[in-house]
Nucleic acid binder design. Sequence first.
DNA 1: GAGCGTGGTTACCGATTGGATACCGTGGTG
DNA 2: CACCACGGTATCCAATCGGTAACCACGCTC
Lengths: 110, 110
Amino acid sequence: MFEEICPSSLLPFRIGGDKWAGMVLRCLEDGPRRYSELRVPLARISPKMLTQSLRSLERDGFIRRTEYAEPVRRVTYELTGLGRSLLEPLRTFCSWAEEHWDELLDARES
Amino acid sequence: MFEEICPSSLLPFRIGGDKWAGMVLRCLEDGPRRYSELRVPLARISPKMLTQSLRSLERDGFIRRTEYAEPVRRVTYELTGLGRSLLEPLRTFCSWAEEHWDELLDARES
DNA sequence: GAGCGTGGTTACCGATTGGATACCGTGGTG
DNA sequence: CACCACGGTATCCAATCGGTAACCACGCTC
């Protein structure tokens, strides 16, 4: 999903302290996701970093972690109101990046 | 200038690799600035980091460095077109941050 | 009871970041 | 000559980042 288009080193912005946070947020756009569901689109992230990102986003109030009292273990992550409100400026930024992608690459090369 | 309102550790986003880049860009909003002029509003940044931010922003094509062939040494930094275009999403983000400042603080505390 | 999936944690370790501090060459100025 | 401002560099060091790999408890299934 983000592998090619979002090496994140090229994107000139970051959400949260770590570089994955923005992508995690975008993965939660369409509703709650489980830990293992997040690992699919974010294949390149190690479990350690994913946990770290999730904890950090939770601490900052962007996402909510819910652990279900079911026989099989089930944990989901979803955006809070605050997290959802962040999507708008985030999208502004992403569309800026798409729009200026070529310029970014040109500037990097030279 | 940014001392109290922008500890940057609180701001949930970053421009460029380093945490100062966003503030540097905003300092250049109103026109070219000299190295020493930038150090005033960005009092808390070390010369090393300021240089690093400036070099990085220059490499990425957001700012332009101009060295004048004058007897006294004079160097200015100004936004390029690309850099200027980044101001808009940047401002979107900043106003988001202002709007949700209390929520951010609340989330951090608990 | 061996193995699997879920949702992680832990230990280790090299690479990177970032702060403080001191220093430097050039060109004025007193 | 001494000293200052400008625009940085150089060095040192501690903290953090981030990847790999192993491990773990729990419940389920074969």
